[in-house]
Write a protein that binds this DNA or RNA. Sequence first.
DNA 1: TTGTAAGCGTTATCAT
DNA 2: ATGATAACGCTTACAA
Lengths: 372, 372
Amino acid sequence: MLSNRFDPRNGAALSSENGCDGTPAPRRPTISDVARAAGVSPSTASVVFSGKAKVSDATRDRVLAAASDLGYAGPDPLAASLRTGRSGIVAVVLEGALRRTFLDPVTIATMDGLTDGLASAGADVLLLRDEPHKPGGAALTTAPIDAAVLLGCSTATRESLDIVRARRLPLVVIEGDAGDAVPQITLDNAEAAAGIARHVRELGHREVAVVTLPLDVGRRRGPVSPERLARATVAPAIQRLAGIRGVFPEARVLSAAASSIDEGVIAAGTLLDADPRPTAILAQSDMLAAGVIRAAEDRGLRVPEDLSVTGFDGVRVDGLGAHMLTTSVQPATEKGRAAGAQIAAMLAGQAGESVHFTCRFRAGSTTAPAPR
Amino acid sequence: MLSNRFDPRNGAALSSENGCDGTPAPRRPTISDVARAAGVSPSTASVVFSGKAKVSDATRDRVLAAASDLGYAGPDPLAASLRTGRSGIVAVVLEGALRRTFLDPVTIATMDGLTDGLASAGADVLLLRDEPHKPGGAALTTAPIDAAVLLGCSTATRESLDIVRARRLPLVVIEGDAGDAVPQITLDNAEAAAGIARHVRELGHREVAVVTLPLDVGRRRGPVSPERLARATVAPAIQRLAGIRGVFPEARVLSAAASSIDEGVIAAGTLLDADPRPTAILAQSDMLAAGVIRAAEDRGLRVPEDLSVTGFDGVRVDGLGAHMLTTSVQPATEKGRAAGAQIAAMLAGQAGESVHFTCRFRAGSTTAPAPR
DNA sequence: TTGTAAGCGTTATCAT
DNA sequence: ATGATAACGCTTACAA
């Protein structure tokens, strides 16, 4: 028997003969095969494909023709990656199920910007869930990635963070709790939320309620006690609430289980059926605000005459109708793009740095002077 | 000068001395370093990490200790990939911008199922846009992937398809136009749509209009002429329309520019302000149907008393209110899971096969006998 | 402009 | 249970 060694290309033991007809097992052509067929050296052929050096037209044509002849589809990415030390892949680590993550328009916008910013570095995005203790080992430890971005992760991600550090991969954290040395993309959540609150106070509102984003991975719906707040982990939710509390320390606060219209409806239901009824409801996202408006209108309340409603994010909410939400517009896409740019810089050998973004208050048609 | 060869690990020329302090340039430990430190052979160390053979406890402990000592984070995925011929990555090729793709709840559900189905094969998902003629070469040709899934791609993807074929990668197409030999995940769009249409006809409706999904990559909003339909490329839209036309050949047909509530509102606006006003509107997605309902209610029309509305998909539409949509429920998550399972099978050396799914009609509260 | 040579770090096989 | 060996396919520095 001539050869029975393992051949990764075929994923199984390769014997010198095929099972039935004596034909040699089909082996994929390599760049050396192409070079040989073209009568050039492997390095020349390599350069033809990478374009990293000048090659005479005649040579290039011969190489390309040989490649086409042999059905060679270009350099094997796996081998090229090992040689260059780069896979061209950046992991985006998401907390929780894909389904939930991508239900949030802000996340989608951020992902959009991220892929965009990464594209200029020639990198693509690998979707990874934050589940380090998965049976069979975490994908984060074995995936051929050049860098990682932690997106929308609360402290639950500590473990993922350690893995990335152990692998010494460039890392950027978007609005998460990452600590010291890691470049972060941040937002002025507290200030922006305070700005909204001030607007509402200036309109004369005193009976105000708040609907927050989920505060932790538990995502429990309901009133936010001091104890609960102390255990909260989701930075944006905590910060926005702090901003509001600076203006309305006594506001009643309810947590939603997700950033969705339906959750807004549920929370507003509780708030609007209470006595005294708030004259303004500050929601921590535009999706929640849309739900609050829906709940108000279902009860025959007019927005903004009977109830003022504010949001946060400044995203286009599909199905909000004619209302123009009073909100604070965050540069969601820019956040992602900035993360991508930092990754690109770090991959290019530069130091990554944190980037801070600010929101822009936008007065809409959903707030008005408090009824008296 | 002892050495000035290229070192992929550091991404730059490696000199025998560091720039300032004479310290040797820090080199990452390899599995051989770990093996040496533990006093075992590299193959033994490898087996400790892969678990693919029995190792005595004492040996394993020594290796692990050495690894921990040296700060070794595990086998280099790039090198392991080259050796095994597997990267553990499957590309999902999407048509158009991420932002648009992920705005569709059906796509999200399918992605959810796909990642799920792939997880059992130990594979993760690389997001790739369908743009083969991008400057710098298509990512699809150079990405270290084991297989590819084409999701929601019309014929525009022919080129991507060719690349995947040239690379001889396992491929599955979800509801797309891929031709013969490629395993496909399909849906009984025509039959399911016909079923909805029959339900509406049995309720006595004769004046019926249709709101379709985008018909091609142009995604133009407006009336669907025979010429336009002839140039349509989006299979589900075409098939669903065919199903409806079998029941209501004369129905007025409007195409939406996306599958969203707002687009439904726009299309329904045109239809409801026309004379004669339809007594039923068949939307090709639940999102569109939600918009149709919204538009109707905005005009003071009651659903279903004055207007019957049907959808397609059976997804939970955030903010649909109390209505229970009459629709056809498609197994969106299952479609993705099936695609993942086929990829897994092909990666395991088995033949991939097409999988056909059927929708289930669901009568809701948005259809009623035609007003007379 | 092209060729030569030396690995990149790992893991499957086979022998012990 | 462990070790020696031989690839995996490519890209780069350097010489010609």
